[in-house]
């Protein structure tokens, strides 16, 4: 390691802040990080001004950990700015990697979201129908706020990304792997996703047998959970279609995987693959005895396919958003 300390930046865009907490979750290793690197930018913890970043030389930052999706003009601007200033750009967490929960906003658009948030919500009283505008005139002059976009994008749909750390938030072990590799200068080829190739099932503690289910159940509908694969018990678990590395934490808590790890390396579309798997095993026993209405009834038990199969990945899916009709 060279004498000079590495320069890290952490930035958050459209995200919940969980990724920031995850950084702290590496516990005492944070001290090693502090020893090895200076943190130049960390809005959640430190004050900063845009002009401080703008003043940096290009490539001044060694590694930028960028969490959050891109859903307004400020986030986009900062993404571009940080790209310019950073040697290595890491998409950190599901929102940056695949769109994350904010990506589900792609089921609506700016107009629809504003209507819900500023008009329709029961707790709202907004008789004048005021909604945020990028620019508004007040007597002191013009006020500007960032422009809100119709469509949420992933980080790599906005700027070039070098590495990806998926997860909501990324598991501590993967953060450690990444940070250690950076500190040691042992980074994998650019474009790599810093997570195992195999799906969550590889790490899941539940015993698996052959998959054939007769109905779909929500978690609360299961009276007594058996000690076996949740999917085999009729609970939709995205584990088989989701990249692992999380040590199947949710499954340890008896909750199904909801897919934050994103698609596996050979999968073009995480939700599409899960739909294929689920529909194949659903009603498999005596499948020839089902009439068409019975098949419909079976399929209808899957409510909200987008929310189920694209909870963290709509902006990066083959079909990235809902088509809005005039």
């Amino acid at each position: 390691m060279s004498e000079e300390k590495l320069k890290f930046a952490f930035y958050w865009a459209a995200s919940c802040g969980g990724c920031e907490i995850a950084v702290l979750d590496i516990d005492e290793v944070i001290l090693d990080v502090a020893a090895a690197a200076d943190i130049l930018l960390w809005p959640v913890a430190m004050d900063f001004k845009y002009k401080d970043v703008e003043a940096m030389d290009d490539g001044h930052i060694d590694v930028c950990f960028f969490n959050g999706a891109i859903r307004n003009s400020e986030q986009e601007e900062l993404a571009h700015l940080l790209r310019k200033k950073s040697k290595v750009m890491v998409a950190f967490g599901s929102c940056a990697v695949t769109g994350g929960i904010p990506g589900l906003a792609n089921l609506s658009d700016k107009k629809g979201i504003f209507e819900t948030v500023y008009h329709d919500n029961a707790s709202i009283e907004n008789p004048e129908g005021i909604v945020p505008e990028p620019s508004s005139q007040v007597k002191e002059g013009e006020l500007t706020i960032p422009e809100f976009y119709d469509t949420v994008r992933t980080l790599d749909q906005t700027i070039e990304v070098d590495y990806y750390l998926p997860g909501c938030p990324p598991p501590t072990s993967l953060i450690l792997t990444a940070v250690t590799a950076i500190i040691k200068g042992e980074l994998p080829p650019k474009g790599s996703i810093i997570a195992p190739n195999k799906s969550v099932c590889d790490e899941c503690r539940f015993e698996k047998s052959d998959k054939r289910i007769t109905e779909i159940k929500r978690v609360y509908e299961v009276e007594k959970l058996e000690d076996k694969c949740l999917l085999e018990q009729g609970i939709i678990c995205l584990g088989p279609a989701t990249r692992g590395g999380c040590d199947a934490q949710c499954l340890k808590a008896n909750m199904p995987c909801t897919g934050c790890g994103g698609p596996t390396p050979n999968s073009l579309d995480q939700g599409g693959k899960m739909i294929s798997a689920l529909a194949s095993i659903l009603g498999l026993d005596d499948e020839e005895k089902y009439n068409d209405e019975q098949v419909d009834a079976l399929i209808d038990k899957v409510v909200d396919p987008v929310g189920t199969f694209y909870k963290y990945g709509l902006p990066s899916a083959l079909i990235k958003r809902k088509v809005m009709k005039e």
Binding site: G271, G272, I275, S276, L278, A279, S280, L282, G283, V295, D296, L298, I299, D300, V302, P305, V306, F309
Partner: peptide
């Protein structure tokens, strides 16, 4: 079944 589910999506 796959097509029915994808249509729902």
């Amino acid at each position: 079944r796959k097509i029915k589910l994808i249509k729902k999506l």
